[in-house]
Write a protein that binds this DNA or RNA. Structure first.
Lengths: 133, 133
DNA sequence: ATAACTGCAAATGATTTGCGATCGG
DNA sequence: CCGATCGCAAATCATTTGCAGTTAT
């Protein structure tokens, strides 16, 4: 009833998708905006927000967080988790050696049907460790 | 330099702590405000925010989320996780039968020193299942 | 042709903050 | 006493939205 029936590939949407896919730092909406703006100076921040929403809805990118009040986006759709550095705030990827046995160890849910779960890590990044943290 | 040296137990702070502890629904700041207001009609929302911050900092309560743009608070400090119903948005507790083997299966961190991790579940609550979801 | 999309600018809404008055230790 | 805290109101800031003009299909 409320989703668009046809999704069009506008040049703005394509640019936003490519910028997000090419970024390795899990950008915020504003960071995507700044990236796209270098090639398309008239694009508006509202358009970036609307397209990131559509692209995430279509499964072409992933929404992360919010971290520190800001939503982030990831062009990498593969199954992986994330760590946030508590000092500098950067987000990095985490590949688990083996999928932890979550399903089997969740019997105490109060009648919920589980759809998904995510593991969020917090830690200190290599750079901040060097700086004495 | 920036944390208060002495923490005073004002009647507002105590009321906020008790309200949060007695609530079983992981209230938002505004919900805590409404609860406390019934006993202390002149309390301000700003005071609630400031005190929830202090109480969480001191480890007397836990900050959750944000879920749907709103931070939530939990008077239960014990080690447990949470499920969010994707339809009605309520948050329930999850007790894992056994602590999943996370530590041993995280070798691929890019040099991070891990401080903590959390598991966030999404699912459909019993009530929403009954309603056909 | 026409519904989806855009840029712009204003609105929203949770949270934060400055300030002068008040209170706890 | 005096610095921590309060109530109030205004400010902040990420995100959303209304609208009139534009574009993809």
């Amino acid at each position: 009833m409320d989703k668009p029936l046809n999704v069009r590939m506008t040049k703005q949407r394509l640019a936003i998708l490519k910028a997000t896919k090419s970024s390795k730092c899990h950008p915020t909406a504003n960071e995507v905006y700044l990236m796209v703006r270098t090639k398309m100076p008239n694009i508006s921040l509202g358009t970036v927000y609307r397209n990131l929403e559509v692209l995430a809805e279509k499964g072409l990118i992933r929404r992360l967080g919010p971290y520190d009040d800001k939503m982030r986006f990831d062009g990498d759709i593969s199954d992986h988790h994330h760590v946030k550095c508590v000092f500098c705030g950067r987000i990095d990827d985490v590949e688990l050696k083996e999928k932890p046995e979550i399903e089997g160890s969740v019997p105490c849910l109060p009648g919920y049907k589980i759809i998904s779960y995510g593991i969020e890590f917090e830690g200190i990044c290599p750079e901040c460790q060097k700086k004495g943290h």
